[in-house]
Amino acid sequence: MNATVPDAQVGPRPALVSWFDHHRRAAVQSFLRLWREPIQSLVTCLAVGVALALPAALWALLQNVEAVSGSVQTAARFTLLLDQNTPFEVATQLAAELEGQANIDDVETVDRADALKDFAYGIGLNELMDNLDENPLPHLLHLHPDKNLSSAELDALFISLSTLESVDQVVFDTQWQARLGAAIATARRLTAGVGVLMVLGAALILGNTIRLGIEARREEITVIKLIGGGDGFARRPLLYSGLWSGAVGGLLGAVLVALLFGFLAGPADELFTLYGSDQTVSGLGFKGAFGLTVAGGLAGLVSAWSTAFIHLRRIQPR
C-alpha cells in the first residue's frame, strides 16, 4: 500500500470532447442494454410499434385511395342527352365532329333504344320496356375528355357542350368527386388525430419503461450524484434508451404495416382494377418506414427527457 505511486499528470479533457465521448458511450451502452433483457425490450418496442403502426397504416391506405381517385378522375365522362327529336344520323355526325376536337378523346353514340335497354338492365327491370308505350330517352353521346384536362378546363368544356345545338342536357357527375374529396379530407384529419393520440400513447408507454429503468438504477444514480455527477450525466443513458426503444419500436411498426399491406394486397389490387385503375396497393415504402423509425425515436427521446426531468431530481443522496 503506497500512496505515492507515480503516474502521468493528466487531467480531464476539454468539456466538449468528454461530453461527446460520454454521449457516444451512453448511446452504445444503452443500445446493448436493450439486448440484456430481450423479452422486456421486445414487449416495450412492440407496444410502441403497434401504437405507431395504426396511424401509419391509415396514412398509407389514404395515399393509395388518393392515388386511385386521381386516376379515376381522369376517366371522367360526360353524357350528352340530345334533343328528343334529333335523328340518329345527326347524332353520329355530331359525335364525329366532337371527336375531332383536341380536348376530347373519344365519343361513343348510343341509340335511344339501346339506352333504354341499358337503363332497364341497370336497374333490373327488363319488363319495364314492355310496359312503356314510348321510349322516354333521347339518343346519347358518351364523351371522354382528354385525360390531362384540369378541372377548370373540364368546366369550360362542360359549358361549351351545353351550348351546342341539338344538345338538351349535359350530365357531368362531379358530385361523387366532391364527396370523395371530402371523405379523403375527413380521413386525413382522422389519421392525424389518431396519429397524435397514438404517438402520445407510445410516449406514455416509453415513459413508464424509463421510469422503471430509473427505479432499477436508483442506486447508480444516487452514487453518481454523491460523487459529483450532474443530472445531465445521470440522464444521458436514459435518453438513449428512450431513443433506441422508440426507434426500434418505429421500425417494428413499419414491419407490422408491411405485413398488413401484404395481407391486403390481393383483394385491394382487385378493388383497384374494378375501379378501372391499373395501380397496385403500395405500403409505407422505404421513406415511410424511415419516417416511422425517426418518429418513434423522437417520441422516445421526448418521453425519456420529460420522465428523467421529473424523476431524477427526486433522487437525492441521503
Binding site: P12, R13, V17, D21, V223, I224, I227, G228, G229
Partner: peptide, 9 residues
C-alpha cells in the same frame, strides 16, 4: 466512475 464524470480519456 468519478473519472468518467470528470471526462478523462
Amino acid at each position: 466512475l468519478p473519472l468518467d464524470i470528470a471526462g478523462f480519456h
